[in-house]
Amino acid sequence: MTRYPLSGPLMGLLVVFSTPVLAAGDAADDGVRWDVLHDMYFKDRPIEEAGDRIRIDAPARAYDAALVPVRVEVEPSLRLKTLSLLVDKNPVPLAATFRFGPASAGSGIETRVRVNEYTNVHAVGETEDGRLLMTEAYVKAAGGCSAPAVKDPQEAMARLGRIKVKLPETLTPGSPATAQVMISHPNSSGLQFDQISRTYIPAHYVQSIAIRVGGQTVLEADTDISISEDPNLRFSFVPVEGGSLEVVAHDTKGATFTRTVPLAAASGKDEPAL
């Protein structure tokens, strides 16, 4: 991370304790950072260690800091009201908060995040009786937030807002299934610098994603700049007879992107995108 101005869309960035990486993975430093985040996002609510009930699967060393796959596994018996994903040392640490609805079939989530420097990643689950459970994983990667934008800007703009939904080949009403939703969007972080204009490319990212099945909420997500370009979610849901899966996303420029896929059509393979 290089310097960034404290103005415009960057006002809300957390710049405390952005100490230069002294020794990568300095445990005390990581602990201090987490204390700050705990206070910032969860106030004085106690947070328990989740143990085996919530686990994070992320590469110990990421290959592309702008696209780090993170899977949060949640014990099936544990019903969560919300799940928050934090990349501790990112300029905006809270990557996403997921609120689960009645059509959810479990609180596990898989997505992709940007990682700006060696950091802990935290998942914090809120149980239906209001307890907070957390788990963490350490990821070595750097530069993901300020990493240059998309490889092919023309192609990216051409498909901005396109949504692809992947469903299993067979779906049985009432029987939990996994789906994947992909939203084509540059998700510009506001931290990507343009050397010719001498300015930062303005932040422009997906800030909410709602997924419903048969009119019932599977999940609603608030998302931020720590989510990689082309936001990508895997989640579980309960199919209903004759229903459809509906995705509604909003970005920070006020655009709305939607896609509705009939569940019955899932008998083939991937639903063609648009």
């Binding site: 300020s146 990493a147 610098f193 050397q195 010719i196 204009s197």
Partner: peptide, 15 residues
């Protein structure tokens, strides 16, 4: 080239 390098040069220089 111009736009692509402009978006990356600062990251490349730092690296």
């Amino acid at each position: 080239l111009r736009d692509a390098l402009a978006a990356r040069q600062e990251v490349y220089r730092q690296r």
